[in-house]
Nucleic acid binder design. Structure first.
Lengths: 340, 340
DNA sequence: TAATTTTGTTTAATCGATTAAACAATTCAA
DNA sequence: TTGAATTGTTTAATCGATTAAACAAAATTA
């Protein structure tokens, strides 16, 4: 690693103090510095290929222009899309993104947050895992700005950009019922996450509103872990009931991805044997033989708002902001009403 | 932002110098420090919730335990999968990842590299964009460790983990020819990237070896930009030739994703009218009605090796290392040999 | 018992910036 | 012409750690 050029080097070469170099390179004390010297400093900086050492600058200014992004898994297309949107929005204000995947694990999440706090990130965008309320309380207590995205805890009041999951699920189920379906299944995660529970509550709410008696066997809650196997088993079970479900709501893209692959390999016909709605947009749901009806989250807006909100909170004191967006039901073949 | 606890606070509370605090917290001078004082320092650190300020530490030690990851687009599943693998591997050695998307744009790439160099990252993992040789030369000249992944420039000698793209494409085309196909098309990017050219060269090589005269209209080179429209037009053209192609190789997941959606919407039957092979593993190619034959890149291995290699180069002087891995052809329905 | 070692701790410089305050040299105003 | 204001620049403290070197006190050796 070659020794880097620092302000001192410029100062020595030009024959001035480092203070002057700093002032010039930061365009401070504009009126006070002689044009000739300023130009000479700028020229020399360019000539020596000077680059400011952000670490030193950050130490002094107590600002890193860095934000921490914590999601469950950066390789999940939902989160990597968000990451890209956040990256671009942050870049507009010269912020850089450090990311970490929590794997839905509270301990990992805590470790990540600490690592990033140690690195003095200016704030966080977090899609929190289960049981991480204490992480957020810690951040609040320490006055470290953060914005939740996608998920939140009703009992923790903080900045957040989320969707109305109750309404989204309700709409999806209502749509399936309107399509003539009577036995509606759901595959969701076994989780205490509020957004997941809202999805289930929306599902139950729609059933109830339509006087459909919910049967316990209709709702499968998948444990994090060997998701693939568990989803396959769940679907197998749903279709093996003495009265199998005639329609199915997937509560996330991951569940739907595994589910679709399994369904494609079975004799089940979509939407003939089984109508399907899934949360989240996925390339693969376009390519399934019956393109999937899905709940489209306004991911661009979510990412942009979360980032803008965070940067505002970093740069000025503000009250808590909570934004609720809506998912859109995009209706396609997988819930086509079949007329016999 | 609440004032953070620093070593000085601990020192004052315990009644010792900050030097002692630093020694204790870093487990240095083990034999020399009295057990009682050491314990008291540790206790007080815990009590005050002390966290080390990495920025300050980095400034002094000239080490940030941070690596920069530069890819074309973090929302591309190929790159986000890599990112996840790299994250995990880096975490094992307590490194953290900062990422940036170059958008296949040399200027953005240069800006990104500078931003991350300013932040004193310890090294880079880069999937370089076109015309970024100078960026890499800069890094070499400054002795900043980096490893290329997925793509490289034959004229720049540096650490890299890539696959043999010539061989991969060759294998794919040979497989299509073996399946009885005679008019083989390719959809690739219009790019000077070596890996892309190798794919084309492999394609041409296989044709030649099999005495199939290549026709110019068979190979469509898509400009970065409005990829979707351009892919659709390309496929339309390939299928509208007076003698349409009977098989098609997609040179990347992005191209294949758009391509498959378009093909699904047409009357073209796969593999009957058109056999298909694609580079890269994708969920969507599992769900296409004719599950796609594809070239599987050893992405886990690539990510792990690149990270290990980088960290080794960061931690000790080493000679340039170049790793060539192989893609595997996974044969499925989209290239089924049809017997009439 | 004096000289030497060992033990435990502090001092002070340093990393590369930023920035309030001080200081000289001019210019201006009265 | 003298005091005040302006202009141009430097000094030195600081951010929060690390760490070589210095130092004092206690233990060991001769």
């Amino acid at each position: 690693m070659k020794k880097k050029v620092c302000q001192k080097d410029i100062a020595q070469k030009v024959g001035v103090s480092t203070a002057l170099v700093s002032y010039v390179l930061n365009n401070l004390k504009e009126g006070r510095i002689s044009k000739a010297v300023a130009q000479k400093i700028r020229d020399t900086a360019k000539e020596l290929n000077y680059r400011t050492n952000q670490i030193a600058k950050s130490l002094k200014t107590n600002k890193t222009f860095t934000i921490g992004l914590i999601v469950a898994d950066i390789s999940n297309p939902f989160f990597s899309s968000l990451a890209r949107i956040i990256e671009d929005e942050a870049d507009k204000k010269n912020y850089t993104v450090i990311f970490g995947s929590s794997d839905e694990n509270a301990q990992k999440s805590w470790k990540l947050i600490n690592t990033l706090v140690d690195r003095q990130v200016d704030g966080f965008i977090i899609a929190p895992a289960e049981n991480t309320e204490s992480n957020l309380t810690y951040l609040k207590d320490h006055g470290i700005p953060f914005v939740l995205i996608d998920r939140y805890f009703p009992r923790i009041e903080c900045n957040q950009v989320v969707i109305d999951n109750y309404k989204a699920a309700y709409t999806a189920v209502q749509h399936m019922i309107d399509g003539g379906n009577k036995r509606i299944g759901m595959v969701t995660f076994n989780s205490t996450l509020y957004n997941m529970n809202e999805r289930k509550r929306g599902y139950l709410g729609a059933l109830k509103e339509n006087n459909i008696a919910f049967e316990k066997d209709w709702c499968k809650e998948i444990f994090f872990g060997d998701t693939k196997t568990n989803v396959e088993k769940a679907i197998h079970d749903l279709l093996s009931l003495s009265q199998p479900v005639d329609s199915l709501l997937f509560a996330s893209n991951i569940l739907a991805t595994y589910g679709l692959k399994y369904i494609q390999a079975t004799v089940t016909r979509v939407p003939g044997d089984l109508a399907i709605v899934s949360f989240d947009q996925m390339d693969s749901s376009d390519l399934f033989y019956a393109p999937l009806t899905y709940l489209k989250q306004p991911i661009q807006e979510m990412g942009e708002m979360a980032t803008k909100m965070l940067l505002q909170h970093i740069e000025e004191e503000k009250d808590v902001e909570q934004v609720n967006l809506e998912a859109t039901l995009v209706i396609r073949d997988s819930t086509l009403k079949l007329v016999y």
